[in-house]
Design a protein around this nucleic acid. Sequence first.
DNA 1: ACAGCGATGTAAATTATTTTCTTATAGATT
DNA 2: AATCTATAAGAAAATAATTTACATCGCTGT
Lengths: 288, 288
Amino acid sequence: MADIIATLQKERDGLSRSEQRIADIVFEEKQFAVNASIIELAARADVSPPTVTRFCRRLGCNSFSEFKVRLAQSAFIGTRYLEPEIKVSSTQEVIDTVMGRAQSTLHVLHENVDAQSVEQIADQILKAKMVYAFGSGGNSSLFAHEVQNRLFRLGVRVTASEDHSMQLMTASTLGEDDMVIGLSISGRNREMARALEVAAGYGAATASITKGKSIVAQASELSLAVDLPEGTDVLRPSSARYAFLAAIDMIAFLVAIRRKDSAIEPLRRIKRQLVTYRDEDDTQVLGD
Amino acid sequence: MADIIATLQKERDGLSRSEQRIADIVFEEKQFAVNASIIELAARADVSPPTVTRFCRRLGCNSFSEFKVRLAQSAFIGTRYLEPEIKVSSTQEVIDTVMGRAQSTLHVLHENVDAQSVEQIADQILKAKMVYAFGSGGNSSLFAHEVQNRLFRLGVRVTASEDHSMQLMTASTLGEDDMVIGLSISGRNREMARALEVAAGYGAATASITKGKSIVAQASELSLAVDLPEGTDVLRPSSARYAFLAAIDMIAFLVAIRRKDSAIEPLRRIKRQLVTYRDEDDTQVLGD
DNA sequence: ACAGCGATGTAAATTATTTTCTTATAGATT
DNA sequence: AATCTATAAGAAAATAATTTACATCGCTGT
């Protein structure tokens, strides 16, 4: 089930004049469109109701009401979260804004993520004898540790490094059984790109999770593109971290499934260890 | 505009027998309810169409179609993400599942987060001369570093510790100007609770972001409850981390706003540093 | 037992939506 | 330039959905 707003944007130019008028009304006044009857919407766009029906069909809906439901679903993210910059002051507004950014970031990732890249990286992790996760800077180093945190539970030999020099030195010791994963939000980390190239030079597999077409992406064989628009407000925390977390999640989950049998044992051991150590309650999820 | 699903849950017991049947159908089969006509829905619930209309009115909607729109909006997360456990195998299913878990986790947090707690913790951070973020274990130590990563940019003096002994020792050196924030998904980290109590004993302010009513929550003066249902599948990564990230986000964002003037300068400096150091492009977001 | 009230269904009325058919219009062809 | 064709779009009719008005049922309290 595709996002109707996205479909609308993509198809707009292929629509007839009247239909474009409807499209524009829908796009600019989602709130109105979602609540209007076909007659009201037709009147607003200055067309007849049948034209609206045809418009809905062209967008892949069987009926106007199906269109409205789809619009309401898409517009949920839209109306609730993709609002333009609003002046934020009350605590509730802060909460709504933060949640909105997080949700819409995830939504954008979901729409754009390339399944094949996820799969290729997961497959390579399964093949490698050792995985090195590289990331620098407040956020990306976090991601490197997240990769380590997620993979070690699955019995993958993995380590994380957040230090440029260390990354470069490590890269030069690698061989064919090794794999490097570079993590960078901006993709402009030259040192990381260099480390990836060095590792590749020695035969190691290289992958990255970063901005598409960036130098880090170009420096690695496999790359999962995470392209997100970032706002300009300097106070705004980068919501990209949700997307990166999700990207790592996907890869780790896939790795877990692919090596299900061999992964369950390490997980069980970690869990037993934690439970015994901390308390008798066995309901706890792996790791705090 | 309140969430219709939440309203439904709250009001359910005040509804008549027939209306409860409708409520149950709606709740259990959102997907169906969103697409059904009033006649179909009435038939499924074994009631007459007017009863459905009355049901909608009671929930604060003027018409069935308004109800459906509201349901579609609320149920967007629901229909798309809160689906029961599905057998996951293809890469696309993995992606959908991961995104679904992330989205619904954030949704649950958004519905339940206590604004007052967020505010109290932010205020306390603003008052403190130094902040110590404590977290242990793969996930929670990540959160502690995230707190550090977020707050230092705002000019807050902050450090993170993931080591129990270190936490305990640190706690015993604190005083009235200090603040400790404990982060724990399960809330069952006894050492952390102990460290918080020790810090409080020496006059430091204590806060936690953890499961409500847990020992860690009880050991701290201020606590932001993050209560999330966790699945039972051991292979499943804990989606709680999205919620924790968001919780930290909220607090940091609020801190940023409250000390706007003094926060912008450190951010600008960090940014200039990064930009100069890495390349000429100034569009980059703070920190990789 | 029965008055009164809320809950529910039936059928009619209303309203919304879609289908069918017709007309208009832009571009293509001679 | 005349005419043809295909597409677009509206009018009116048909259908379907929804709501209203009203009748009935069944429970509760006297």
